[in-house]
C-alpha cells in the first residue's frame, strides 16, 4: 500500500514536469528557449517516471525489469545532453538566430558564422 503511494507520487511528479515542459514548449518565443524548456521533459519528466517504474519492478521482485528500467534512465540522461547541445549548435550554424537576446557573446566573437 505504502509502496503503491510512493510509486504514484513519482509518476505524478514525472507528469507534472513533463506538463510544464510541454507548456513551455508552446509558450516560449524562439527555438532556443523552447529547447531549454524541453530539457525539463528529458530530465525530470523521464527520471521520475523511470524511478516510479523501477520501484514498481523491484517491489514485485522483478529484478530484470528493474535493472533494465534503470539502464533506460541512464541512457536517456547521457544521450539527451549531447543531443541538446548538438541541436542548439546546429540550429545556430544553420542561421536560426535567437530573438531578443540580452547579450550574445558568441555572435560578438564569431561574427561570420
Amino acid at each position: 500500500m505504502i509502496v503503491r503511494i510512493i510509486i504514484d507520487l513519482f509518476l505524478i511528479l514525472g507528469c507534472f514536469f513533463a506538463f510544464a515542459g510541454a507548456v513551455g514548449l508552446l509558450r516560449m518565443p524562439d527555438s532556443f528557449t523552447r529547447m531549454q524548456s524541453s530539457t525539463n521533459i528529458a530530465t525530470f519528466g523521464v527520471l521520475w517516471t523511470v524511478l516510479g517504474v523501477a520501484v514498481y519492478a523491484f517491489s514485485n521482485q522483478n529484478f530484470v525489469f528493474g535493472i533494465k528500467t534503470v539502464m533506460i534512465g541512464i541512457f536517456i540522461v547521457l544521450t539527451s545532453a549531447v543531443a541538446g547541445h548538438a541541436i542548439l549548435k546546429g540550429g545556430y550554424k544553420h542561421g536560426i538566430r535567437p530573438e531578443n537576446l540580452v547579450v550574445d557573446e558568441y555572435r560578438r566573437d564569431n561574427p561570420n558564422e
Binding site: 507534472f16 528557449t33 525530470f44 540580452v102 547579450v103 557573446e105
Partner: peptide, 26 residues
C-alpha cells in the same frame, strides 16, 4: 542542482508573465 533548475524553469514556463531574459554568455 537538477531539482533546483527544473523547478525554476517549470515555474517560468507556467507563470502567466513568462519571465525570461535569454542570452549567450562566455
Amino acid at each position: 542542482e537538477l531539482w533546483k533548475a527544473n523547478v525554476d524553469v517549470a515555474k517560468r514556463a507556467l507563470s502567466p508573465k513568462l519571465p525570461i531574459n535569454p542570452g549567450i554568455v562566455k
